[in-house]
């Protein structure tokens, strides 16, 4: 099977936040107030070396969140995605500490560190429930992958900066871009 990956081409990202909006809209049924699965970060804003990058769960192969979770609620899909089971999640927040990308987010910030069930990008692939069931939509949002479609954020990216799909295809597209740009300064970063 494929190994699904995201890649954000910093030379193309124009910080339009279209991916953020697309994600919020597509997964609206699962997102509690204040939860944002994807965000665009601009470093060196307004100065030399400014670059924007769209960040969400990177679906690591050897995922730190999965390693640290006391409830062991994470699982790998056959598409190489790192998904989680909200029924098993205990809201301890360890995955947020372990994740290099700040992908896990929690709906509450209460006393005793009570946070509610963790939410993160699912690569628009839903959760462990039956595909397109109500339970899946309420907890995880869209399941576009089951329909043979790619995540909404990448599909709606106006500059095709954000790429999603099988790692080999994504990297061949990017390699082609770099070759076409024909300069060392055109590679990622």
């Amino acid at each position: 099977m494929a190994t699904m990956k995201f890649l954000c081409d910093t030379k193309r990202c124009i910080e339009c936040n279209g991916c953020v909006t697309a994600c919020k809209n597509e997964n609206d049924s699962a997102l509690e107030w204040g939860i944002q699965r994807r965000r665009v970060v601009t470093i060196n804003d307004g100065v030399k070396g400014e670059a924007s990058i769209s960040v969400a769960c990177m679906h690591c192969t050897d995922a730190p969140c999965e390693a640290v979770c006391p409830a062991n609620c994470f699982y790998k899909t056959e598409d190489g995605l790192t998904l989680h089971n909200k029924d098993t999640c205990i809201g301890c927040g360890y995955c947020l500490y372990a994740c290099p990308f700040g992908a896990p987010q929690f709906p509450k910030r209460g006393a005793f560190g009570s946070r509610g069930k963790m939410d993160k990008c699912t690569f628009c692939a839903g959760g462990p429930e039956e595909d397109h069931s109500d339970a899946e939509r309420q907890k995880y949002g869209a399941n576009r992958l089951a329909e043979g479609k790619l995540p909404m954020c990448a599909e709606l990216c106006a500059t095709k900066s954000l790429l999603a799909g099988d790692a080999e295809i994504v990297s061949s597209i990017f390699r082609e871009r770099v070759a076409y740009r024909g300069s060392n300064s055109a590679i990622w970063g």
Partner: peptide, 21 residues
């Protein structure tokens, strides 16, 4: 980014202004 640079973002999510920790 690998060194942990932080930047500007519209998100209010926790630690969301840092792409990589």
């Amino acid at each position: 980014l690998k060194a942990g640079a932080t930047g500007e973002t519209t998100s209010h999510g926790q630690f969301h202004n840092q792409p990589i920790n």
